[in-house]
Design a protein around this nucleic acid. Structure first.
Length: 621
DNA sequence: AGCCCAGCCGCCCTCTGCTGGTGTCGA
DNA sequence: ATCGACACCAGCAGAGGGCGGCTGGGCT
């Protein structure tokens, strides 16, 4: 709609209030062409119309209109003789409509399109169809419509032209000699070259119900359109202007139809109110945030959101609301739990009909909101908006502790809880001892490990069969320390197959690993590697495990130990892969890397004799 | 015209659950 | 060294709750 001038906003708001509070004030038109168009508010209704127009104008004019009290000296009225002609249906198919024309000295014809009873739209420009328009003839006056920002016409009612149910907003004018009767061709000739539309808002008011006086208030509606969408609102206005209203003779039931939408109403006031929704006209401006509203009530409700004024307070909690409807709805949600809207397909019920409508889509599968970048479609607008983040990469939610960003608030919430929370809830699996942080992951755990499997799950080591993975795994663990691999040629047994493979070669004599430098063969790859490093690698520095007491060096850690102790049934050094097994009688404090020490404890020379006992001191961790 | 009320739309939120990538651990 | 299993984690979508705001009917 209109881009309202910001420079005068706060004052405009004040002015609206003034207009409401001080109806005794009148409006004085600013002089632009040397003609002071001072209105004489002869009746309360006329005054009301002027106030309305003033408020409207405030929102669309660049310059303010000063509020001045009406004085007796404002006698310079512009009594405009409005003349009408009733076209016959045969002539122009303008059934039951009047034609008004404005005749100006420049000879400009301004067409007035009747958008509804009491609501006329003036517009310059070529017409598509004569029957949509009403022309006004203004005689004896020099008005350039571009300069008629707020102008009231006083017309003499003479004939029956009922435009409203109450005969209050009627334009009824007599035929006169000043009438310019436009024919379709003539109209085109006169107006075809006009391309720029000039919109005026015309409100008709009867000056006095007992008099014949009709007051037309014309407001300049030339407003700044937004450049990116210059035609939409205009088109709406155009359509709204073409709305045909049905008039009937007094006493007959009438229905008013909106041509823009399907709206109909038997009441003209409702119809007029509705038609304003098509004009995007929002003359009531919030002086705090510059937002504009159609009605004073909406503006007041809005201003209440700024001031915190919430007159409707809930008796059961501390909530308060701007409107009574919001309070009722709140009470249903929070206190009464009344859910009048029930789903016919399930037990779902909701407080609001729109929620039921949304819910029903989960039954029908309807997905009206299509993503423009992929095949996804959602059942409501929010999900589509949320989905669009997957295309934009937007992550609007940031963890206030580690500043990790997330696409959804719920994801961030669970992150904060799990990563930064103190009393993190855990989820115990009901079938095993597993504890999992997230409920959804527990569900995955249950599905993977505890779900019944129709297919038989066979043990790798024996013939046992299970139907639950967890039971299978638990069973296979019983095979863990078994020396399941037994040598066919001797009593040797081991737990790992690769060990058995290496052992078998001691019987077969197979030595599959050959040194490329000297052609010596080995049973194990590891033996070949040691050989190569020792005899063929120039950079190889042999490790020496040195006794710190006697200074003797050993190539292997185990050799060092063997030189000092007896009673060690099985020894292995670092890199051998086997554990140092200590039997009873072994010196206390003897340590091995795999018995709890770190790699630094393997450094040669760290071992040392103790002064007593075993000769070895405990290795410091 | 103003007010109240009901209905409706839209927005934002939470809760929930599934999915796939990743790190860790044990075999 | 490799591989498989699995808990962990972020991404993403479904469903529904709650509220702000707009519109129209009816009334005063």
């Amino acid at each position: 709609m209109a881009a309202t001038e910001i420079s005068v906003l706060s004052e405009q708001f004040t002015k609206i209030k003034e207009l409401e509070l001080m109806p005794e004030k009148g409006l004085k038109e600013e002089e632009k062409d040397g003609v002071c168009r001072e209105k004489d508010h002869g009746s309360p209704r006329e005054l009301e119309a002027a106030c309305t127009s003033g408020a409207l104008q405030d929102s669309v004019l660049e310059e303010e209109v000063e509020l001045v009290p009406a004085t007796s000296e404002e006698s310079e009225k512009h009594m405009l003789t409005l003349q009408t002609v009733h076209f016959t249906s045969e002539a122009v198919e303008l059934q039951d409509m009047s034609l008004l024309s404005i005749q100006q000295q420049e000879g400009v014809q301004v067409m007035v399109q009747q958008a509804g009873p009491g609501l006329l739209w003036l517009e310059e420009g070529p017409r598509q169809s004569l029957q949509q328009y009403v022309a006004i003839s203004i005689q004896q006056e020099l008005y350039s419509l571009q300069e008629m920002e707020v102008l009231q016409f006083h017309a003499l009612e003479e004939n029956v032209m009922v435009a409203s149910e109450d005969s209050k907003l009627a334009v009824s004018l007599a035929e006169s000699a000043g009438l310019i009767k436009l024919q379709e061709g003539q109209e085109k000739n006169q107006l075809a070259e006009r391309t720029k539309e000039q919109l005026f808002f015309v409100e008709t008011m009867s000056g006095d119900e007992r008099s014949d006086e009709i007051v037309l208030t014309i407001s300049n509606l030339n407003v700044e359109e937004q450049e990116d969408q210059p035609t939409t609102d205009q088109a709406d206005v155009e359509k709204a202007k073409s709305t045909k209203n049905q008039r009937k003779t007094k006493g007959a039931k009438r229905t008013f139809h909106c041509d823009v939408c399907m709206f109909t109403s038997s009441r003209m006031s409702s119809f007029n109110r509705h038609m304003k929704t098509h004009t995007n006209e929002k003359p009531h401006l919030c002086h705090l945030c510059l937002k504009t509203f159609r009605t004073v009530t909406l503006l007041r409700n809005h201003v209440n959101t700024h001031t915190g004024t919430r007159p409707y307070k809930c008796n059961d909690c501390n909530m308060a609301f701007v409107t009574s409807g919001e309070l009722v709805r709140h009470r249903r949600y929070k206190h009464t739990h009344e859910k009048p809207f029930k789903c016919s397909m399930c037990k779902y019920a909701s407080v609001e009909a729109s929620k039921l409508k949304r819910h029903v889509r989960s039954h029908t599968g309807e997905r009206p909101f299509q993503c423009c970048q992929c095949s996804y479609a959602s059942r409501d607008t929010y999900k589509l908006k949320r989905h669009m983040r997957t295309h934009s990469g937007e992550k609007p939610y940031e963890c206030h502790i580690c500043h990790t960003r997330f696409t959804q608030s719920g994801t961030m919430k669970i992150h904060i809880l799990q990563k930064h929370g103190e009393n993190v809830p855990k989820h115990q699996c009901p079938h095993c001892a597993t504890i999992i942080a997230r409920k959804s992951d527990l569900r995955v755990h249950m599905r993977n490990l505890h779900a019944y499997s129709a297919a038989e799950l066979k043990c790798r080591y024996c013939s046992a069969v299970f139907h639950e993975r967890y039971a299978l795994i638990q069973h296979q663990k019983t095979h863990k320390n078994e020396k399941r691999f037994k040598c066919e040629h001797c009593s040797y047994a081991c737990k790992q197959e690769r060990h058995m493979t290496a052992h078998i070669r001691t019987h077969t004599g197979e030595k599959p690993f050959t040194c490329l430098s000297c052609n010596k063969c080995f049973r194990q790859k590891q033996l070949l590697n040691v050989h190569f490093r020792k005899y063929h690698d120039a950079n190889f520095i042999p490790t020496v495990y040195k006794c710190s007491k006697c200074g003797k060096g050993f190539s292997r850690w185990v050799s060092l130990l063997k030189s000092q102790f007896c009673g060690l049934a099985e020894l292995g050094g670092p890199g051998s892969g086997s554990l140092l097994r200590l039997q009873s009688g072994c010196p206390p404090g003897l340590h091995h890397p795999k018995a709890g020490l770190g790699p630094e404890d393997l450094l040669p020379g760290q071992l040392c004799h103790t002064t007593a006992g075993t000769g070895l001191s405990p290795l410091a961790a």
